[in-house]
């Protein structure tokens, strides 16, 4: 009984608690497998967008991407997401030092930055729909744009819910070998969201602005 408690208590955590158990190792490997699949999934959406970005069909209101996109908002969104990636690195740094409280604080900051990003993205979409009539059904460009960027936004929303759930669920438990892999994997997911965003702001917004 007491040995079991020892293993799970936060004073005796091993180095790299996220990979100390077989379950943790499996989560780690399985999650990277999943990220490989996600890469291909997003590639198919990027490929679709690139192929259809100049297809407006017989749309009544057509606004090409050069006029549509505003770089100020995208720049702020990029900075928010990039910073949230760093704050989740800080969270994992404290996890590896077995400091549960500091990890929770940095995860909380990550969630706030992610929520700000999502809020700006919703505002952006609202702006496009109401001022430019750029909707999901207005043209092939619209469909491809909202599918790609919206799918990324849905990933951000899912990541936020995931991290918040983990924080609430484990708030009173403290850090142990059972939940350390869960926090670690969630932070990997959060970094991957930023990886996808790097290509979205480059390929969709910056290249779209150039033409």
């Amino acid at each position: 009984m007491s040995t079991h408690e020892d293993v799970l208590s936060s004073e005796n955590l091993p180095h790299e608690p996220e990979k100390a158990t077989l379950e943790g190792k499996n989560k780690f490997l399985g999650f990277w497998f999943f990220l490989g699949g996600e890469t291909v999934l997003f590639a198919s959406l990027f490929g679709t967008y690139l192929a259809l970005k100049n297809s407006f069909g017989a749309a009544e209101h057509t606004t090409p991407s050069q006029e549509l996109f505003g770089l100020e908002l995208v720049f702020i969104m990029t900075m928010l997401l990039l910073t949230s990636s760093l704050t989740s690195v800080y969270a994992m740094y404290h996890m590896k030092n077995h400091d549960f409280k500091k990890m929770m604080v940095w995860l909380g900051i990550t969630v706030l930055l992610g929520a700000a990003f999502l809020g700006l993205e919703i505002y952006e979409f609202y702006h496009y729909v109401h001022h430019y009539h750029h909707t999901f059904t207005s043209s092939a460009f619209g469909s491809a744009f909202y599918t790609l960027v919206g799918f990324h936004g849905a990933h951000v929303a899912f990541g936020l819910l995931w991290i918040i759930t983990l924080m609430i669920r484990n708030a009173r438990r403290g850090l142990n070998l059972y939940n350390a892999p869960k926090f670690y994997v969630a932070s990997l997911y959060w970094h991957f969201i930023d990886v996808v965003w790097v290509f979205i702001f480059t390929v969709v917004y910056l290249m779209g602005k150039v033409g």
Binding site: F28, L29, W32, F33, L35, G36, G37, E38, T39, V40, F42, A43, S44, F46, G47, T48, L50, A51
Partner: peptide, 22 residues
Amino acid sequence: EFPALMIYSGIFAAILTILALT
């Protein structure tokens, strides 16, 4: 090593996908 294998396989398939679609 395994994460690298997964990500590089993913990137390989991703490049093929984008090339094919575009």
